[in-house]
Simulated scan of single mutants.
Amino acid sequence: MESVLRLAVCVGGSALVALAVVRTADLLARYADARHPETPLWGLLRRCRTPLYVVLLAALLRWTYPASNWAPLEDHDRTVGHVLLLCLIGGGGWLTVRAASAGAETLYARYAGRSRDAARLRRVRTQVTLIMRVVSVAVGVLATAAALVTLPSMRTVGTSLLASAGIIGIVAGVAAQSTLSNLFAGFQIAFGDMVRIGDTVVVNGEWGLVEEVTLTFLTVRTWDERRVTLPVSYFTSRPFENWSRGGAEMTGSVFVHCDHSTPVALMRSHVEKFLTTCPTWDGRGWDLAVTDTSPTGITIRAIVTAKDADDLWTTRCAVREELVGWLVREHPGALPRVVTAPAADPPDDRAEEHARTPSMTREPHAR
């Protein structure tokens, strides 16, 4: 009975001590966050509470449980110790990833507060995201390797694997060729400034915003809220349009088909007046000109500018709607026409000549 009480004291005391330490650290982080609101580090470090508690509890239990002298626990001393060691390794890896993520996000927040270049911010954000993924994978691999080393049976397996590392490397390289190509393509995208999170791209005839970039795939959110997932090797092996590279400003065209009697000068003046009231026009430039003509009408092209692809689409739609409405209200005769009337009859003299023509070309009858 005394050993059971000792075990309860060890477990309960370890849990209380770990909880007290975590609670104290959380209060200190909250106090520092309130004193220094300019940096999000202390607020982000509060997310490390759970892994810190796991690490402290596993370490305290591994140190205190032998003092309980409980017979069933002593019979499985090696198993219990090994389980606590695995918990300590896993919690340590979890804590490392959380702390590294807090540090990376803090550095990005400070950089974003100083920089006003949106393109550079998207580039840094993409790089930080991919670096954190690499760190998470590396920490996970190291934690798994450390856990396997603690198993006696895995040491022999590890030795045999190291002995045949050359053959395994060749086989793995051939089998994972596409995966490795995507991995290196991910690094090329992150540090080659080809495409960044938040860029407006056109792939496979679909345009949208780059929403997520990983080491193996990239997600594009289209204008109708669909998600197009593509391997990152697609962007290193095929051409694509990046409307945000070199600046997000764009120029677009609006085509209107009209009759030959359209007052182009009045239409040009109306477009200029309308653009001054259009909130999505950035004021960089505009133009209106007749770009084509045909026997049935003319084609008028209006050019407008906007600060990004979304505003350009809105501006084009607004200009197109305004031009059509203006023609309907002010100049309905300038709307395109479809000729459906029958052809007029020829004059009388031409009709007689037309009637005599077949008899002159008719072959004589055989007698």
Rank of each mutant, 00 (worst) to 15 (best):
M250R: 08
A99M: 00
Y65I: 15
G283V: 04
A248W: 05
L183E: 00
T150A: 10
R320K: 15
C87K: 09
A143S: 13
R238Q: 09
E211D: 11
V254C: 04
E206N: 07
M360V: 08
V213E: 07
V201R: 06
R35S: 08
R268H: 11
M194N: 12
T229N: 07
T276Q: 04
R320T: 14
V97E: 04
R78A: 12
A29I: 02
R227F: 11
T340F: 01
P336T: 13
V254S: 01
R49F: 01
C87H: 11
V149S: 03
V21N: 03
L218R: 14
G43N: 10
G103M: 15
L162W: 02
V339K: 09
V271R: 15
A366N: 13
V22C: 13
G90Y: 07
A341T: 11
V83Q: 07
P263Y: 04
T159H: 06
L45S: 02
K273P: 00
P72K: 07
V135K: 06
A366K: 05
I298C: 03
T129N: 01
G246S: 13
A138H: 07
A355S: 13
M1R: 13
G208E: 05
K307E: 10
S359F: 04
A25L: 06
T262R: 11
A143I: 03
P346N: 04
V11E: 06
D193E: 10
R125K: 14
G252Q: 02
A138G: 07
F240H: 04
L95I: 03
A344T: 05
H76D: 09
E353I: 12
G247I: 09
V141R: 06
D292L: 09
D308N: 07
R238C: 01
D282Y: 14
G158I: 06
G93L: 02
S136L: 15
G140V: 06
